[in-house]
C-alpha cells in the first residue's frame, strides 16, 4: 500500500486540477440548477423529475470523468512516458494499475459526493416548498441506494476502461471500445426481457448468442435504481446483495485481467 495510496492521491490531485474537470463541474452545476427550475414547468410528478435529473447528472458527470478525464490522464502517462517516473521506483505494474484505478475512483467519489449533496439539498427544498408534490412513499433510503449503486456502476465502467487501456495502442480505441461496452451493458437487460416475453422472434442460434453476451458483457441496468427512487418503490435487499456481489466479482476480474495484460505490455 505504500505505493498504491500515494499514487492514488497523486492521480486525484492531477484530476482535481485538470481543466477538463472544471468544465465537467460547471456542466453538472448547470444541470443541478435546471433540476430545481425544470420541475416547476411540470404540473405534477415534480419530485420524480427532480430526482431523475439529479441522478442523471451524477451519471453524466461520472461518465465524462471516466471517458474523458481518466482516459486522458492514463493515456498521457503512456504517451508522454510519465509512467517511467513511477515505474523507475520500486512500484510494480500491478501496483501502478491499482494506484491509478484507486485515484480515478477517488475522483469519481469526490464528484459523486458533491453532486449527491446538491441532490439532497434540491429534494429538501422541493419537499419544503412544494409539499403537495412530494412523491408518495418517498424514501431517503431508496434514494441513497440508488446513488450508491450508481457509484458502483461508475466504478465498474472505470474498470472496463482500464481493461482496454491495458492493451490498446491508442487511447481513442480504448475510448470507443469502452463506450461500446457501456451501450451494450445498458441495453442488454431490455433485449433479454424482450426475448423472454417473446416480443421478438429469434432463432435458436441467436438465443444462444444472447446467453453468451449476457455472461460476457456487464449488465449495467442492474445498477439503475432511478425508477425505484423516483417512484418511491420498495427495494429488495436480496437483489441488492446479489447485484453487489456481481459488481465485486466483475470489477475484480476485470482488474486482474488488466494487470495480466499490462504486465506483458511493452512500454517503449
Amino acid at each position: 500500500m505504500n505505493t498504491i495510496f500515494p499514487l492514488a492521491i497523486l492521480t486525484l490531485k492531477e484530476g482535481l486540477r485538470h481543466r477538463m474537470l472544471h468544465g465537467i463541474a460547471i456542466l453538472a452545476l448547470l444541470m443541478t440548477g435546471a433540476s430545481t427550475l425544470i420541475p416547476s414547468l411540470f404540473m405534477y410528478d415534480l419530485g420524480k423529475v427532480a430526482i431523475d435529473i439529479g441522478l442523471s447528472t451524477i451519471t453524466m458527470s461520472g461518465m465524462l470523468i471516466i471517458f474523458f478525464l481518466a482516459i486522458n490522464i492514463i493515456g498521457k502517462d503512456l504517451d508522454k512516458k510519465t509512467i517511467y517516473m513511477v515505474l523507475a521506483t520500486s512500484t510494480s505494474r500491478a501496483q501502478y494499475i491499482l494506484g491509478k484505478f484507486l485515484g480515478v475512483c477517488l475522483l469519481l467519489l469526490a464528484s459523486f459526493l458533491f453532486l449527491s449533496c446538491l441532490l439532497f439539498v434540491t429534494v429538501c427544498v422541493l419537499n419544503a416548498t412544494l409539499p403537495h408534490n412530494v412523491i408518495a412513499n418517498f424514501s431517503w433510503t431508496t434514494l441513497l441506494y440508488a446513488q450508491l449503486f450508481l457509484f458502483l456502476e461508475l466504478v465498474l465502467i472505470a474498470s472496463v476502461v482500464f481493461f482496454f487501456m491495458s492493451f490498446c495502442s491508442s487511447f481513442y480505441i480504448a475510448l470507443i471500445l469502452s463506450g461500446s461496452i457501456y451501450l451494450i451493458g445498458t441495453g442488454i437487460e431490455s433485449v433479454q426481457l424482450a426475448l423472454a416475453a417473446k416480443e421478438i422472434k429469434t432463432s435458436a442460434g441467436l438465443s444462444a448468442l444472447m446467453q453468451w453476451i449476457k455472461w460476457i458483457f456487464p449488465n449495467l441496468s442492474a445498477f439503475d435504481l432511478k425508477t425505484l427512487a423516483a417512484y418511491g418503490l420498495p427495494v429488495h435487499h436480496e437483489t441488492l446483495a446479489l447485484t453487489f456481489a456481481y459488481w465485486f466479482f466483475y470489477t475484480t476480474l476485470l482488474l486482474l485481467c488488466t494487470i495480466f495484460f499490462f504486465n506483458r505490455r511493452e512500454l517503449s
Partner: peptide
C-alpha cells in the same frame, strides 16, 4: 525526455517519490 505530471508542483512530485521509497 523527462516529462512529469503537468498539474503537480516539484515539491509534490518529490513527496510522492519519497513516499514510494
Amino acid at each position: 525526455h523527462p516529462y512529469y505530471y503537468d498539474n503537480l508542483t516539484a515539491r509534490e512530485l518529490l513527496d510522492f517519490l519519497g513516499k514510494t521509497a
